[in-house]
Amino acid sequence: MNDTLVKIGKTVLKTPILGASGCSGWGEELKCFNDFKNIGGFVTKSITLNEKIGNEMPRIMETYGGLLNSIGLENKGIEYFIENILPSLKTFECAKFLNIAPFEADDLKKMIELLDCHSGFDGYEVNISCPNVTHGGISFNSSADEAETLIKSARSLTDKTLLLKLSPAFESSFEIAERAEAYGFDGITFTNTYIGTAVNVKERKFVFKNRQAGLSGSAIKPLSLMNVYKMSKRIRIPIIAAGGIKNLDDILEFLIIGATAVQIGTQLLIEPDILTRLSRELNLYLEKENIESVKKIIGSLKE
């Protein structure tokens, strides 16, 4: 058996392949299609301090080779999560990260304080990069100083693995990642969706009530690959790459260019068993190519 393990912070992933936030549900739905013993893990939908009802329809629109979404972080808030969802999460035998999305500067502290006494998950993915809410959230991603006010105290609040998920829409993401590294974050998830939009020609209106939406899927892969490459030059903590990954070659490209693990979003919506399938394919690839460990691939780009 070849070695597909990677480590991010304190978390060991059985394979470097995770289900991305917003595309993995709360795990329960994913479990119907995947054998959790054989996959890396997943990130939950975004959790906010208070309930968010989410955006009006339409929330989804296909573009050429991609997907625009405007879901709007629909969730019932942190207390509901702890009471009703966390207990089932505990039973899943793979890595589980909670994606937590702060709106106000002290939301993050409050959320980690409420969650951290519980077991049953591996860590947090702090999301300041959702393009689908009108205030808070992504504004932290638009300036390194704003982001710093939010992230600087996070490490002192938890021993669990701490990831920061950043947007490709802001140049500041690179500096924020450097500061997150300095403040003790264990990894950077890059990239969230790109900001895009669509117009209804007949009505001469934006398709989405929120005007903008997040673009994901195959269409963004080359962009995210370049962004991950640039990010790998700026930080030493692991990068968990996302953006249009749909097959083993895509995964290998991201690992070669410097990612330690990857997340699959849009393609997971299309093939809900893809985490299991690609984990198996990665194993076969290592065997066939006689590569003893996936770590040999990570950052192996020849320049």
Binding site: C32, K45, R59, N69
Partner: peptide, 13 residues
């Protein structure tokens, strides 16, 4: 209009 059809994304509400 559905993205996943299996409850993963909240796209179809």
């Amino acid at each position: 209009i559905m993205a996943c059809g299996v409850g993963l994304c909240n796209g179809c509400v």
